[in-house]
């Protein structure tokens, strides 16, 4: 799905988190929102997911105005930085949650839910952990469960907030590869937020460098590296 961000701004009280930004993310892209903390990247992601409402501007999904769609109607697979797993539910119930939450008419039968959850557990290569609770998982496993839970609702896009932030370096490398594979298999337009330029450059097709609520530069990783547009970008990617 093509995502178009049209003159979006966001103020919290009197402080501007986003000065009007415009950005197009082509269908099937794997895009990184890259910037230091306070650059507005998470705010932008939350506006895409319907968790915040922009102060002005529009969001278009495949050319259709989606600004007024509620978070439930957007069907965006959202992975939170803390993963936000339901700790009183098993891994199986976590992944099945979105399917069970549907209104009765569109809710799949139990057998179908079991089939889909099993398939997703296979996809994240953790077929044996359905009966465990989140507290019994490692950080990397939790991240993959959060991803599977987001995929279970058959989302129109995948939004990830610092998906590798809380993990150690080795696991991070492994999971990057995992995300790339899942993206390539599903073909979902994917946007992730990161402050780690190496991660953005290595994983994304499209990198959006942000600072202080503005977009500094948009481009392929190689282009950004070769031709940084501003001093900020040059300095930020050289770290």
């Amino acid at each position: 799905m093509h995502i178009q961000i049209d003159e979006i701004s966001k103020e919290f009280g009197s402080t501007a988190a986003l000065t009007p930004v415009t950005l197009g993310i082509p269908s099937g892209a794997l895009a990184a929102l890259l910037g230091p903390s306070g650059s507005g990247k998470t705010t932008l992601l939350r506006i895409l997911g319907g968790l915040e409402f922009p102060s002005s501007g529009r969001v278009l999904f495949d050319g259709q105005d989606a600004t007024g769609l509620s978070v439930q109607e957007r069907r965006a697979g959202f992975v939170f930085q803390s993963y936000a797993l339901f700790r009183h539910m098993t891994v199986f119930e976590n992944i099945a949650y979105g399917l069970r939450a549907r209104p009765r008419v569109s809710r799949p039968a139990d057998a179908e839910i079991t089939r889909r959850v099993t398939k997703l557990l296979d996809l994240i290569q953790l077929p044996q952990i359905g009966t465990r609770y989140p507290s019994q998982l490692s950080g990397g496993q939790r991240q993959r469960v959060a991803l599977a839970r987001a995929l279970a609702i058959e989302p129109r896009m995948l939004l990830l907030d610092e998906p590798f932030g809380a993990l150690d370096a080795r696991v991070r490398k492994e999971l990057r590869q995992g995300l790339r594979e899942i993206h390539d298999n599903t073909g979902l337009t994917t946007v992730f937020v990161t402050h780690d330029q190496e991660e953005a450059m290595e994983l994304a097709d499209l990198v959006v460098v942000m600072s202080m609520g503005r977009i500094e530069q948009v481009g392929r990783p190689a282009d950004i590296r070769a031709r940084p547009k501003t001093d900020f970008v040059r300095e930020f990617i050289s770290v």
Partner: peptide, 17 residues
Amino acid sequence: EKEVEEASATLGATRAY
């Protein structure tokens, strides 16, 4: 965590659910 409630909403659950 606010995020846990938000996660539920992004998965399509109504507020009551």
